[in-house]
Design a binder for these strands. Sequence first.
DNA 1: CCAGACGTTGTT
DNA 2: GTCTGG
DNA 3: CCAGACGTTGTT
DNA 4: GTCTGG
Length: 219
Amino acid sequence: MCGRFTIAPLVDLFDRFHVPERVSLTLPRYNVAPSQEVPVVIRDGNNRVALMQWGLVPSWTKDLATARKPINARAETLAERPTFRDSLRYHRCLVPATGFYEWKKEGAARVPYYLRLRSGDLFAIAGLFDTWRHPFGGELRTFTIITTAPNRTVSPYHDRMPAILRQHDEERWLEAGPLDPATLAGILAPCPDDVLEVYRVSPRVNSPSADGPDLVTKV
DNA sequence: CCAGACGTTGTT
DNA sequence: GTCTGG
DNA sequence: CCAGACGTTGTT
DNA sequence: GTCTGG
């Protein structure tokens, strides 16, 4: 699955995703955890960067306090899920990332590994977002990360991985409007085996309050 | 009809 | 909002 | 995802 | 054990 990621871009996020309007960002981040606010790319006329909280709250949610706020959506089933279906049609987004963590079960222990592109490049994870309106005003914008089957590089570590978009699919993903199931399956298929690399990192990443470049150091 | 759920992962 | 279960 | 809390009353 | 918070 994908429950932590990094966004520590070496290149300009706005240029990489063709966003004309600059907004202020608090980057880099080496340990983004659920519920935290990070930049995502949406299309609203032009591409735009919006800050959203990780954990989807559908627009029809009645009680924010008891809402589930799923951080992941399975690619294989999201078209059927009431929680994701509307977002899938009209609120797709890119989640910029430079890597993500997976915890591997090794006996009783859960050992963190870091996965990133061999190129070290910034990439886009397929995401969905929605806007929830407070009863007395104000908006909460949230997103979820789509997961897919692991490729051969990831499968020794985990049985799910984030849906990393091929660069030529990024613009199509942002376009509003329904996608037919075959197109969807193609876009959200696991990325090629040879683009990712994996190595073990310190369990200091376990604590959501930890941050800093040392978290992605090989151990 | 109304009430209640609406999610994923991992673990058992 | 929309679907499922009773 | 993991870490940390998990409670009430009354007093400050 | 299970829920909440980050």
